[in-house]
Write a protein that binds this DNA or RNA. Sequence first.
DNA 1: TTCGTAATCGATACCGTTACCGTTTACATA
DNA 2: TATGTAAACGGTAACGGTATCGATTACGAA
Lengths: 332, 332
Amino acid sequence: MPITMKDIARMAGVSVVTVSRALNNKPDINQGTKDSIIQIAKDLDYTPHGLARSLITRKTNTLGIIIPNTEDSFYAAVVDGIGNESREREYSVILCSSHSDPDEELRMLRLLREKRVDGMLVYPTQEDDRYIDVLRHSPIPFVFLNRHTDALECDYVINDNIHGAFSAVDELIRKGYYQIIYICARPDASSGKERIAGCKAAFRKHDLDSRNLRIMTCEETIQSCYDLVKGIIKDTSGKPDALFLWDDRLAIGAIKALLEENLSIPEDMAVVGYDDIEISKFLYPSLTTVRQPTYQIGGTATRILIDKLESQDFAGPQRIVLKPELVVRETT
Amino acid sequence: MPITMKDIARMAGVSVVTVSRALNNKPDINQGTKDSIIQIAKDLDYTPHGLARSLITRKTNTLGIIIPNTEDSFYAAVVDGIGNESREREYSVILCSSHSDPDEELRMLRLLREKRVDGMLVYPTQEDDRYIDVLRHSPIPFVFLNRHTDALECDYVINDNIHGAFSAVDELIRKGYYQIIYICARPDASSGKERIAGCKAAFRKHDLDSRNLRIMTCEETIQSCYDLVKGIIKDTSGKPDALFLWDDRLAIGAIKALLEENLSIPEDMAVVGYDDIEISKFLYPSLTTVRQPTYQIGGTATRILIDKLESQDFAGPQRIVLKPELVVRETT
DNA sequence: TTCGTAATCGATACCGTTACCGTTTACATA
DNA sequence: TATGTAAACGGTAACGGTATCGATTACGAA
């Protein structure tokens, strides 16, 4: 039985309405009674009841996040960006991991609706459109993270995968690497397709035969990339001189495989990663990589969402494309 | 204006009470009316109003997490453990990062109380006891993560820092490294003190002069550790033959510094980390490290908390100590 | 004196749900 | 026939706040 406004009201000899006015800086209240009410509330260590308040104001000051997982440091950075921005704007955050499971995503969605979050930040696992339909029919505003959708009037913040991959391969070609393998973890996802397109665009720019670009697929684990690269080294057909990896984690696996086989980097083989996670700079050799504005993706998406929530006039859908930046280090 | 039970009731020609019974599998309802009500609810795409429900049931099915930050992959693993366990038990999670700021911690605490979370998982930044006082006087059950406190009746899940550090140094000594430097990031925190104690215990066990153990301090950034190790290498006084690092991130910085100075690992210098983050296995050379059951810390703490919430009879405080495990790889 | 107005406060309804208890009906039992 | 009992449902009051509007008071102006 925690302290309620009723208790305070009784002690102060006023009505709950007056207490509410005092505690929320509302007008129509005498400064004196206000002070004493605030004092009493402090003495009793009163804590406002968020649920009761939200029920009537129809505002929870809470956002929901749905992301594929929470273990990957890439997503952790996104969440960090979201967390910081929303904290500044006085919103809380309910975190939901879908574990890359579409059904789970739908469940989380329902959950967030039940919890009456004011808005949602959604990083979809899949490209499935029925999922988008559900979102659109939901009354809760949302912003997509790294999910490109022109089909409808919805906001998103993405990074320019095409440009990112392009700048990586362009760098390789300009340094004289022509036999390039792109090791892609999600070739069927939109981000995968875009990056592959970016690779090809770089070849076109330099008038090179794009048959020199090989696309290979591996799982999103370091081990699987390590194994794949081992195989590539053993394989004598074709002689790649550069590897462009899906992300920095996989690049670490690739580097280990190369070094173990006594190949020198970047002389025998150049390596380029994607993301620029913290440790990439401190690898030996340090990793050339495409820096994704991961933190900003979370931050700006949150800003857009809250702006939308708090402004009456709805401007058209916000579609923000953040440019990744190539960071050249020792592996090229 | 979303659909409410009232709407359903009107359509079904029954009272809201009956609707509530139908939708919540309560007794005292005819199967036929129940079916039709459920059908109507489905047709209208009814979403229960969590706030209203929680207000009367006094249960939000939500937990609050307070951790120092969300960017570090170490904490991400903890959060992952919490998220998975709570999802299985049908609890949501409100994530709060304190940014290692005590005042912020207090604010988050108030926030979670306002939101009426059922319980909290707290990973305190500081050792400050006034903070613990606030927690104890709060009506909300909580479990500490990696925070040791015998002073009061509270639950916690920690890992055995003493044993972890001991096993690392013990390994070094047994392999013939006697001039060991422990680079500690948080020497004043309880975890720091415990690890230092663990180091010393290993020296005692082998009857070695603990003056051969040097404790050095650096910030919790890779860069600062890298700089520190560079300094150590240049410094000719004392000739360490092994480094034991605060965590794997710092170990990566140390390794880079060593390799750049053409020292070979582990011949010239052995290196041991702490945590066993995913990439440690894929470094070249791969890192010997103390594997912390990070994920389990989050998971078991959540289990304890929910068990406590859902059981009437309160068993005494749960205090769980998880043993870290030394993983020997190529840097020793 | 009368009236308007600003300042201050309270009564009441409501937000959407569940808890609690009472009511009705049907039917078996004494 | 009278009574007991179980099944099925509804009425009402919460839960803890805020919105809305109306009431009271004091005071200066007409």
